[in-house]
Design a protein around this nucleic acid. Structure first.
Length: 296
DNA sequence: AGCTCTTCCTGAAAGC
DNA sequence: TGCTTTCAGGAAGAGC
């Protein structure tokens, strides 16, 4: 599943070769995950790719029309979200494309940018220049850039479970199921703990854990669990460093207790029952509160 | 406010 | 062996 480190790796790869290239043609397969496929096909041919950037898990292409024949002279941004199984690769146009390749952007150097997505949980949309700000504002802070104080402010007052907040793209942008579990394991915090009941120390530790996990994962070019590959089609290797995610029954790397799996925020959540004690005190507090409500 | 459930989709793995 | 069922999950929306 592409999360921040995977998307960052892909973007770094695309930045090497795409800026300055012109899109000659667009070929579409299935289009049910594209906001406006007709507009995509009409607007993009003739556009030059100005830049490639990452916003959370989104990949943004800034496009500028070049030919006078272009259908519009307004710059536009193409936002791509890879969902679960999306891949963006640059290949020679003559090379055969894998199954489930649904979008092919022919480039002016004989190659093409391809979007492949088995499950089509990804999204592709065009965003007008004037709306890019609003689009980005819907996302929270980048977890690699957020300050300690801002991290504590964003999470520390919330009653929600800490894992739900890590996954919420409006709180922090870019973290998914793998890196939330890996960060919580490193910070020794149970995923179901309420964020507002964490200590200052725990919030600081968690922020640092998130940073170091993401930075290491970027260095190792992401985690390849099932479908992830970078822009050149190569897998990452951070999955070899996973300490919690998908390690149910395996020994904790710190204390040798068996990693357990539970459901938090509707997602499989892996944790060490010894290093990351479940929130018993919270449970008792909730039971007391329920009692009070019934009586009151 | 925050939780749970549902929907989208395919393929791998488990169950029979 | 071969079919059917289950599960995985990012995000959005509904309903409680």
């Amino acid at each position: 599943m592409p999360e921040l480190p995977e998307v960052e790796t892909i973007v770094r790869g695309l930045k090497q070769t795409l800026p300055g290239r012109r899109i000659l043609a667009v070929r579409l397969g299935k289009t049910d995950f594209i906001d406006d496929p007709v507009q995509l096909g009409e607007l993009l041919p003739g556009c030059r790719i100005e830049s490639v950037t990452r916003h959370g898990k989104f990949i943004a292409f800034a496009l500028a029309p070049t030919a006078p024949a272009a259908n519009s002279d307004a710059p536009v941004h193409l936002f791509v979200h890879l969902g679960m199984t999306g891949q963006l690769t640059v290949r020679l146009a003559a090379d055969s494309a894998p199954p489930h390749t649904h979008v092919r952007f022919a480039l002016d150097d004989g190659r093409e940018l391809r979007y492949t997505d088995i499950r089509r949980f990804g999204r592709i949309q065009l965003v007008a220049d004037s709306e890019v700000g609003a689009f980005r504002d819907r996302l929270g802070e980048d977890p690699l850039e957020i300050s300690e104080a801002e991290f504590a402010r964003r999470l520390g007052a919330r009653h929600a479970r800490v894992k739900a907040l890590l996954l919420d793209q409006r709180t922090l942008r870019g973290i998914g199921n793998i890196y939330s579990d890996e960060s919580l394991w490193r910070a020794r915090i149970h995923p179901a703990r309420r964020a507002d009941l964490l200590t200052r120390d725990q919030l600081r530790t968690l922020r640092n854990a998130v940073r170091s996990v993401l930075q290491t994962a970027i260095r190792l070019r992401g985690s390849s669990i099932s479908d992830y590959v970078d822009a050149e089609g190569n897998p990452g290797s951070f999955q070899l460093r996973h300490r919690a995610y998908q390690r149910e029954g395996k020994p904790c790397a710190r204390c040798k207790a068996q990693i357990r799996r539970t459901i938090v925020a509707g997602r499989s959540s892996y944790f060490c029952p010894v290093c990351q004690p479940p929130p018993r005190a919270q449970k008792r507090a909730r039971q007391r509160n329920r009692g009070k409500k019934r009586r009151g």
